Computed example of a mutant assay.
Amino acid sequence: MSEPSPPTASLAPAAVAASKAQPPQSHAGKKAFAGKKPKKRPAFRIFEDIPKSGFLATAALSFVVMLTVWSALSYGGLMNPVFMPTPDKVFRTFFDQLGTSAYWHQIGISVFRVMAGFVLACVVAIPIGLFAGTYRHAEAFVEPPMEFIRYMPAVAFIPLIMVWAGIGESAKVLLIFIGCFFQMVLMVSADTRLVSKDLVQASFTLGASRWQAIQTVIIPAVQPRLLTTMRLMLGWAWTYLVVAELIAVNSGLGYTIMKAQRFLNTEQIFVGIIVLGLIGLISDRIFAFLSRRLFPWA
């Protein structure tokens, strides 16, 4: 008994006939297809990653543009030098100020005030935010007053702070704390609610208690977002520093800026602003480094 031929053998004549039936492609069509160039990828693509070198070059370009605009306004005489000093004058003042121990003392005082208010806000706000984000009853109890108070400007609390804490260092720390606390509670609560409910249910399936689910699932899952929230709130703490140093002070970067303003030393005002920006940028980069090292999966 002979074996049946494979299906490909029976289909081969039909395939040959079909190929003969197709009209041959014209020479002009082949030439047009061969001469068609692939589309060039656009420079700006949504959510597209770029090389690190390209990112750094673009970031440096942004500072160059800012310096160019500043130079054009000051050297070109478009602005009064009393209000817009030239970059070289500001940079000379910058290095002169940083060459004195007195200015570093002012920087140290401001850093202490910011970190004290920020750390105090983190210690109090993070547990409350975790509690409000985990339980709906806690959310209903905590978030409405936080939403109400967070729209009140921190400057409005200065008279009360002076009554409560006087005009010492505690008043400056308390103002920075108030500026950060209410926002941080709401942001931590929102971060906590983003934790996957499936992970929590899986922990219950494995026999975990409520506290064990919070300790082993919710807290580790929220840590990357929590670090990002702290990074943002530290920037807010620096913005409240100058406001805090308006309360009967004779030290700090905010004080040096206000003192320079009284005597129209605009270059010293620029120096104070630049120093604040540099300190904020350094602290921001530290948080970014910690985020990459501690939570590389995020």
Rank of each mutant, 00 (worst) to 15 (best):
residue 1 M to T: 13
residue 3 E to V: 13
residue 9 A to T: 13
residue 12 A to T: 12
residue 12 A to V: 11
residue 13 P to E: 02
residue 18 A to W: 08
residue 20 K to I: 14
residue 24 P to V: 15
residue 28 A to L: 13
residue 30 K to E: 07
residue 31 K to G: 12
residue 31 K to V: 15
residue 33 F to T: 13
residue 34 A to K: 11
residue 35 G to C: 09
residue 40 K to C: 04
residue 40 K to S: 10
residue 41 R to C: 07
residue 43 A to Y: 11
residue 43 A to F: 13
residue 49 D to V: 09
residue 49 D to M: 11
residue 50 I to W: 14
residue 50 I to A: 07
residue 51 P to K: 04
residue 53 S to R: 12
residue 54 G to W: 08
residue 56 L to M: 10
residue 58 T to S: 15
residue 58 T to V: 12
residue 58 T to W: 12
residue 60 A to H: 06
residue 64 V to A: 15
residue 67 L to N: 06
residue 74 S to C: 01
residue 79 M to I: 11
residue 79 M to K: 06
residue 80 N to T: 04
residue 83 F to P: 01
residue 89 K to E: 01
residue 91 F to L: 04
residue 92 R to A: 13
residue 96 D to R: 00
residue 100 T to M: 02
residue 109 I to P: 03
residue 110 S to D: 02
residue 113 R to D: 07
residue 115 M to D: 12
residue 119 V to G: 11
residue 125 A to H: 02
residue 126 I to R: 01
residue 134 T to Y: 14
residue 141 F to V: 09
residue 143 E to N: 10
residue 151 Y to I: 11
residue 151 Y to W: 07
residue 160 L to W: 10
residue 169 E to H: 10
residue 169 E to C: 07
residue 170 S to L: 13
residue 170 S to T: 15
residue 173 V to F: 06
residue 174 L to C: 08
residue 185 V to Q: 01
residue 195 V to C: 02
residue 196 S to A: 13
residue 200 V to N: 11
residue 204 F to S: 11
residue 204 F to L: 14
residue 210 R to M: 12
residue 211 W to L: 15
residue 217 V to T: 09
residue 218 I to G: 12
residue 221 A to T: 10
residue 221 A to M: 09
residue 221 A to K: 04
residue 225 R to Q: 05
residue 229 T to V: 09
residue 229 T to L: 03
residue 230 M to E: 06
residue 230 M to W: 02
residue 233 M to G: 09
residue 233 M to F: 08
residue 236 W to E: 08
residue 239 T to W: 04
residue 250 N to P: 01
residue 252 G to E: 04
residue 255 Y to P: 00
residue 258 M to P: 00
residue 266 T to R: 02
residue 271 V to E: 01
residue 272 G to A: 04
residue 278 L to Q: 00
residue 281 L to S: 04
residue 288 A to N: 04
residue 288 A to D: 09
residue 290 L to G: 05
residue 291 S to A: 14
residue 293 R to C: 05
residue 294 L to I: 07
residue 295 F to Q: 04
residue 297 W to D: 06
